[in-house]
Simulated assay, not measured.
Amino acid sequence: MELLPEDNLKSNLLLLLLLHLFVGSFAGDCPKPEVGENMVLSEAALLKNDFPEGSKVLLECARGYEKASGSGTIDCVDNKWTEPDLNCKKLDCGQPKPEPHMSFNTSGGTVFGSRIKVICEEGYWILGTSFKHCYATGWFGKATCKIFTCPKPAEVKNGKNSWIADTVPEYGQVINFTCNEGYVLSGSKNITCGKTKYDSPPPQCIGATTEDNIKTSIITSATATTQQERTTASPSATTVIARIFTSISTPQQGDKFITFEKKAPRTSEPSSTTTSLKGI
């Protein structure tokens, strides 16, 4: 039985198709390359679906990694890919640039994926994130160190403090207190600003009284608490001055005194003793 021309054409086409499939199978196609976690296919390789014998594919380092060595090219040989020679290493973000009064704990490293702790100097607090992360684009996480402050010191009745600025006191600054004349401090004469509060409450100014605050002293100089003054009026006379004054004042020039004179016995050289009482 003879085949018609139309049947011959169909037979030839089927034969060519089988031959193509046989030759293609013999030559071999490579599958789509599989890469590790630190490598990716190039954009051109991602757009391909077929990888016939002899194909070349370029590998690149993944995001967060950089090429240390190698070309990155693999070849399709005998139905499989050659081993890649590309060596990728993690990006190093390096030491971050610190803000004023700031440092970092980088014991965990500075390469891609690392996390470091932000540290502020004593007296400062962190505004922002307490950690920075190393990403492919560099360090991520913004922070600044702010100094601790305290409220303005309270006004003290019958006294004053040394703070005259419009701003609030900052960490470590000292406020001094003084009382008006006739009053004495009860408490610490200065307070120090710490972390949001002072190290002690402000003092009070208490009025001085004769019973509680006046004492009798023999004075030898204007600045001592207990003193004795002796003046020689003549070779045969000695004057002793006793003054009564408060512990919050210093004897001044022009103070008024009441003088008592006592004559010495006739048997000895003439002498006199003068006693002055301040404030009487």
Rank of each mutant, 00 (worst) to 15 (best):
H101K: 09
P100Q: 01
P100R: 01
S69D: 03
K97Q: 03
E83R: 06
V77P: 13
T82C: 05
F104N: 08
Q95A: 11
G72F: 09
D75H: 15
N105Y: 04
G94E: 00
H101S: 10
P98H: 06
D85I: 05
L86W: 04
C76W: 05
G70I: 02
L91H: 00
C93D: 14
S107A: 14
T73A: 08
P98W: 01
C76H: 06
N87S: 12
L91C: 02
K97T: 03
K89L: 13
S103N: 03
C93K: 15
K97A: 03
V77E: 15
A68T: 02
K67H: 04
P98A: 07
K97R: 00
P96A: 10
E66K: 13
E99Y: 13
S107K: 14
M102R: 10
E83H: 08
S69I: 00
I74T: 10
H101M: 10
W81C: 00
P96E: 10
K67L: 06
L91G: 00
M102W: 09
K67G: 06
S69P: 01
D92A: 07
K97D: 02
C93A: 13
K67V: 05
P98G: 05
K97H: 03
K80F: 05
D78Q: 00
E99C: 11
L91M: 04
D92W: 07
H101T: 08
C93L: 13
S71T: 12
E83S: 09
T106R: 10
I74L: 10
M102N: 11
G94V: 04
K80V: 04
T73I: 08
T82W: 01
F104E: 08
F104T: 09
T73P: 04
E66W: 07
W81D: 00
P100G: 01
G70H: 04
W81E: 00
T73D: 11
G72T: 06
E66V: 08
C93N: 15
C93E: 15
K90F: 07
G70Q: 05
K67Y: 02
K89N: 15
K80Q: 11
N79I: 12
